[in-house]
């Protein structure tokens, strides 16, 4: 059984990393967006492996369903042509790559050698317990987040609206 979860982790992890690299490297924005959908689905698979089925379902609904469609709509509304290929990467990209690689390697080494006092077996509780935590202990942050969503919705409408008197 641990053998199986090990293999599943390797497969899903490589799907996530490869599709995330393709998001950055593809020249066509729409290919990047589709590769990002693959990455989100892989993350949902990881959530299932971590016994967080509710989070996995929400990941599929929100990221794969809503945010990806929003991004693909924005791509179709804005880019008519691929544009100048010189403008594909920023000129700071070749400095940023080694810095990001060094930071990633450093953090991976630190995080894989630290002792977390972690349990070996899964601890994530069932959906009922998550829901009761969300609506009892974390009710106030929950309401604040809904307020933030409302403000973001009004702001997005205002920003994307055509201005008549200008």
């Amino acid at each position: 059984m641990p053998q199986f979860s090990q293999i599943a982790f390797l497969i899903i992890g490589s799907i996530i990393i490869i599709s995330a690299l393709f998001v950055v490297l593809f020249k066509e924005l729409i290919y990047s967006a589709l590769s990002m959908v693959g990455c989100f689905l892989g993350v949902a698979g990881l959530f299932v492996m971590l016994h967080a089925e509710l989070v996995a379902a929400a990941q599929v609904l929100i990221y794969v369903g809503a945010i990806s469609v929003l991004i693909i709509f924005a791509i179709m509304l804005t880019s008519h042509r691929t544009g100048d290929l010189r403008l594909f990467f920023h000129r700071q990209a070749w400095v940023a790559a080694p810095i990001c690689a060094v930071a990633a390697v450093a953090l991976i080494v630190v995080m894989s050698t630290a002792d977390y006092n972690a349990t070996a077996e899964a601890q994530n509780p069932g959906d009922e317990q998550i829901a009761s935590m969300l609506f009892n202990e974390y009710a106030f942050p929950f309401e604040l987040v809904s307020l933030a969503l409302l403000v973001a919705m009004v702001g997005a409408v205002l920003l994307a609206k055509k201005e008549e008197n200008r």
Binding site: S79, F88, F89, H90, Q92, C100
Partner: peptide, 8 residues
């Protein structure tokens, strides 16, 4: 850091 396109 690397890409120029705002959507990306």
């Amino acid at each position: 850091l690397a890409r120029r396109n705002l959507i990306l």
